[in-house]
Design a protein around this nucleic acid. Sequence first.
DNA 1: CATGAATGAGTGTTCATTCAT
DNA 2: AATGAATGAACACTCATTCAT
Lengths: 192, 192, 192, 192
Amino acid sequence: MKGTKNKILTIASELFAKHGFHKTSMEDIARASQKAKGSIYYYFKDKEALFYEVVDKELLHLRRELALVVTDPNKNAAEKFKSYLMLRMEILKESPNYRETLNADFHDHFGFVDTLRHALDRWEKEQFKRIINQGVSDGLFIDQGDKADVLLDVFLMILKGLEVSYFIQNKYNQWHPYFDDLIDILEKGLSI
Amino acid sequence: MKGTKNKILTIASELFAKHGFHKTSMEDIARASQKAKGSIYYYFKDKEALFYEVVDKELLHLRRELALVVTDPNKNAAEKFKSYLMLRMEILKESPNYRETLNADFHDHFGFVDTLRHALDRWEKEQFKRIINQGVSDGLFIDQGDKADVLLDVFLMILKGLEVSYFIQNKYNQWHPYFDDLIDILEKGLSI
Amino acid sequence: MKGTKNKILTIASELFAKHGFHKTSMEDIARASQKAKGSIYYYFKDKEALFYEVVDKELLHLRRELALVVTDPNKNAAEKFKSYLMLRMEILKESPNYRETLNADFHDHFGFVDTLRHALDRWEKEQFKRIINQGVSDGLFIDQGDKADVLLDVFLMILKGLEVSYFIQNKYNQWHPYFDDLIDILEKGLSI
Amino acid sequence: MKGTKNKILTIASELFAKHGFHKTSMEDIARASQKAKGSIYYYFKDKEALFYEVVDKELLHLRRELALVVTDPNKNAAEKFKSYLMLRMEILKESPNYRETLNADFHDHFGFVDTLRHALDRWEKEQFKRIINQGVSDGLFIDQGDKADVLLDVFLMILKGLEVSYFIQNKYNQWHPYFDDLIDILEKGLSI
DNA sequence: CATGAATGAGTGTTCATTCAT
DNA sequence: AATGAATGAACACTCATTCAT
């Protein structure tokens, strides 16, 4: 039955989100989802494998939503650019398990999610390329030539950095009002 | 004796840096510092209290070094600005315990380090204000008026975000060559 | 269907042989035999019952081969004696599941194999009696009278003891070259 | 305190003896010795390390007792030979944990006791050499020359084999009355 | 000051077995 | 005849913390 696996996945997602990976025990998940501990292991090899699928689900949602923006026929490149950034932050705000992933990296406790994160990085770079190409062919953006790739990387770096100030340090509500200004700053800084 | 406490502190700093807070046990610290486990608890109430002092020490070092830049009589405001940013990254690179503090785990469950981080935030904002004020009075920068405070906050937000891409995601070596460009982008973005 | 049961039996035999009773899980057997876990329980009440049949099959093979020696019309008693001993060791070498049966674990906790082993003991004693009787009637051996039975038991005891040095302690290759000498010693020791 | 460690060691020895290594849990040992589970791990790295020390203690006892026979000034070589064999069996009967060591399981999966067993093997060979040398110099035994070493090994092999029939298959009480006969057989078999 | 023995709650994981279909 | 989802008891091991000395 899909039912059991999904229930475990859903409950696990909530618990991991609320208490973090380390402080959520398999015991907790089993109790909360009213399943036997062994049942979790029937569907998921590991605690890590369970967390992996939880994060995977979040990122699937993120990509699906962002793709709608990128392919939206009613927006020009500049609008897509801004919409993408804002929606990205909005969805990430509700993807707490992916966010936990950004940190612990360092001590390689979550090396097992690297696959997912790198895949997302590549995917996002691709989307930005599309937006920019559209902007260039529409005459809105200037073709940066060889510098384009580096600029894109730098831009993504800043973007990912903001996730931290925004979410992990819980400044979301504090900074959100100034987010427009921030996007302007970035656009201006990158505009040459 | 100061000797014992300092030895514990030094060794703990190294071990936390190498293996992280969670993966470093009091046992490990006791063994490495050739002290009894009980002795650690004589000087430090908690594992958390020990970590707190370790991080405190790192931030003390950071502030001391950055203060030298801010008060340097041989630099103008623009130079101080750039020097501050670069030195900040350089020292943070060697402050792994503070960096672990950026973890969600620590935010959710170890609020005890928040005190330190907030104190640093306030301190850094103060330093930037000094630099900018000097720049304005020297005619280098334009007085932003009411917007100054918000711009400063946004700027610091970006700065802190960069820590993540830089250190936690181990991109330091990858991005370092472009750091100059990045500072330029920030200066340009913020300059009007 | 015989097919399913036999497949399970064959695969189980291989896995038990390779990894031992404890380290072979029903899961392993199910996966390797491409059958569902439940199917194993359809044919075998227990993990123990499954192992029992595996061992039973090995001993069936052993008895069949040894019977050929005992009833061989072209060998005299002395030749049968030596052939029996050597063939016995040769076949046991390839009967790893029976051999695991010698374990203390199995004696303390898995008495279910005792039945098989005792049956084998009785069978082997019978075969030796036959050989000796043939030897006596051919004038090759001396009738030991009342002592015959005890001597036979002692002899079998030594024989079974050798299995351990030989197989369990993996000295097979080491001792094999001296096996002839050993049989001589036993013959001489028992000959009066 | 030696007290706690010894209590754990003693209780563990009894439990391992009664139920075997696998069926004795650390929980059981903790409960029976009225110590915390953690206390066991304070003194013993592992369940294996605990078992190792238990076996070590048994073998220490064995060697101490056998050494008394080997160095007994009131026995000639033949007497020592017989005494050694009988005492050996007597003590091994009361060394159930060492005996579990003879298992295939332990060979495949618990190589950690091999050290002990090999040390014992070497030690026993040494003792036999002493006895035989005494016998030769007293004119009781004939010097076997080059063959001595191999004969010794074969002899030890038989000896170790007997352990199985005797103890693991619980034939001790059954065979003990015939042990004298058995020693005679071995002496005769090996004597030329 | 300093020790180190002792604790016990907590954790991830395994696996033989059952049963509705 | 055959399945495979679901179970739950069991287990080895970790570690921050306490306290008598």
